[in-house]
């Protein structure tokens, strides 16, 4: 079995992002780029499958400029067997990314795709469902626990997923696209010697334009904006004052 894990490079979510004063983009000076934490969980799941002999190889893939080689190196250091960079300098919509991933998944004859449910930062939750739709593979979203089961007519996965009314268990045949929650597992740390080894690895690259995939997009970022400020808060001196405000000014409490 082959597992494909798309990994996205994102701004380290543990630091607040800042807009440039003219709102033309993000203040990148102090930003540290990391592997999308959701994708890191997806990769950990793939590595665990391989360790349990449920899978033979794990391919990590990233789309973007040369900078994305860093997240692929992190993926290799964690234990991915192979890495592939799809090189492009254009901003890519979720749909274009899904088209590219479809092409790679079919070329590489992958049996399952584990992917973070969202890119931390863009927070759009689109690639996994779009990819499943394009491949016409079953979609399992928001996985919190995944079990592989063998059966006469092939492999199936039994997955506990998040839903609006609690958790729901779904069963699907492979191949399938599975999007993961952060709660699925705790990703391992890469060992220092693996990080050093990954640094020296030459990662294969393919130009996005060479894939024969439609790269046209009908969506783009027009502007970034600050959030409207909340009205200035009031620090109240004591509990009676607080309750007075909630009762008489906000009319929330009786």
């Amino acid at each position: 079995m082959k597992i494909l894990v798309p990994v996205k490079q994102v701004i380290d979510p543990s630091f607040p992002v800042r807009l440039k004063p003219d709102c033309s983009g993000l203040e990148m000076g102090l930003m540290h780029l990391v592997i999308n934490p959701y994708d890191e969980v997806a990769l950990e799941e793939a590595l665990q499958w391989r360790e349990h002999d449920d899978a033979q190889s794990v391919l990590a893939i990233s789309c973007g400029n040369e900078g994305c080689l860093d997240v692929l190196r992190s993926a290799l250091a964690m234990g991915a067997d192979r890495a592939l960079l799809i090189e492009t300098h254009h901003a890519m919509s979720s749909l274009v990314l899904a088209r590219i991933l479809k092409k790679i998944a079919l070329d590489e004859q992958c049996d399952v795709i584990f992917i973070g449910r969202q890119g931390m930062g863009s927070d759009s939750n689109q690639v996994a469902p779009m990819l499943a739709a394009l491949l016409d593979w079953p979609l399992i979203s928001f996985a919190e626990a995944i079990k592989l089961e063998g059966s006469a007519d092939g492999k199936t996965v039994v997955v506990q997923t998040r839903s609006d009314s609690g958790s729901v268990t779904l069963k699907a045949p492979l191949p399938a696209v599975i999007s993961v929650e952060l709660t699925l597992n705790t990703p391992r740390y890469a060992a220092m010697q693996n990080l050093i080894k990954a640094k020296k690895t030459v990662i294969p690259r393919k130009a996005a334009e060479s894939l024969g995939v439609d790269l046209n997009t009908h969506i783009s970022v027009a502007q970034l904006r600050h959030l409207p400020m909340r009205p200035n808060g009031e620090i109240v001196a004591d509990v009676p004052t607080l309750l007075d405000r909630l009762r008489h000014k906000e009319k929330i409490l009786l």
């Binding site: 992002v17 807009l19 931390m120 009908h218 969506i219 970022v221 027009a222 502007q223 970034l224």
Partner: peptide
């Protein structure tokens, strides 16, 4: 909202 609702993005979709 993007970046955990710390900024807003205006997207153009045609």
């Amino acid at each position: 909202p993007v970046y955990a609702s710390s900024l807003l993005v205006v997207e153009k979709i045609t």
